[in-house]
Design a protein around this nucleic acid. Structure first.
Lengths: 130, 130
DNA sequence: ATACTTGTTATATATATCATATAACAGAGC
DNA sequence: GCTCTGTTATATGATATATATAACAAGTAT
């Protein structure tokens, strides 16, 4: 799996890496139980610091996306459960409050917005048919 | 229009103020051409610094949401055009790439996601019927 | 003309975040 | 024992966020 970092972005590097790993899981590019590169390896590959990668891995661990073993390293959590929490829905709605408002004012219709959501979601459910 | 600031939030104060003003426009709570409080007044109301409000107003001006006159102060841009730019769609899609992926993995279905989008959007189109 | 209010600019300070660098530590496996 | 793993410690620098105080400049009204 390839990571593309924009070093001139307002979005912090660690956030970009984190986002792309989570998206990689959803897309099926990263399988459950798949091993991730070591902190030193990934840092060297991307051209960033070891600690930045370590920060990513620790946050991913705190949020349950990966598990870390002492020697074997980091792997995607093999028991990722898609159990929906009420908090997740509330957090999403808080996000959408701002995003939909700005999108609406920028002339993006409800249907256009939903089409984008569908096109993204349809990339995730493909996993059974692979 | 009331602003609610969470001082313990990870989201910067200026960002919260900015988001709520933009949302206020979409909801119709702030009318086009409506005058906003002076930087000193709003700062005092919320209990923050004058410069934080000034930062908000300047960013809103740069992005076309408000116009600023030398003495009359800041008002919602009376000529806010909802002309859709291709950039706006691309930016939205970039946002949705990450948000949908994480939502999917947290067990939020496509239909649930879309329902939230619709519920938000339906609050904006009401303006003609007021 | 004077006073007041407006946004604006200049300076300074404090704190937190982001990212890097170097080094050393501790556990697990060969 | 050696090597690879994440981890921790310490330091440095740049940038972002927020505050504080003060002064400036342009409109508006008295």
């Amino acid at each position: 799996m390839l990571l593309h970092i924009q070093f001139d972005s307002e979005t912090p590097i660690y956030q970009q890496v984190k986002d792309q790993i989570i998206r990689g899981i959803a897309l099926g590019e990263l399988k459950l139980g798949e091993k991730l590169p070591s902190v030193r390896q990934l840092a060297a590959d991307i051209g960033i610091n070891l600690h930045t990668v370590n920060k990513v891995y620790n946050q991913l661990k705190s949020e349950g996306w990966v598990v870390i073993h002492r020697k074997s390293g980091v792997m995607i959590n093999p028991h990722l459960n898609l159990n929906q929490s009420s908090e997740a829905l509330e957090e999403l709605d808080d996000l959408l409050k701002n995003i939909t408002a700005e999108s609406f004012l920028k002339g993006i219709s409800k249907d256009e917005f939903i089409t984008l959501v569908e096109r993204n979601y349809d990339r995730y459910n493909m996993r059974e048919s692979e």
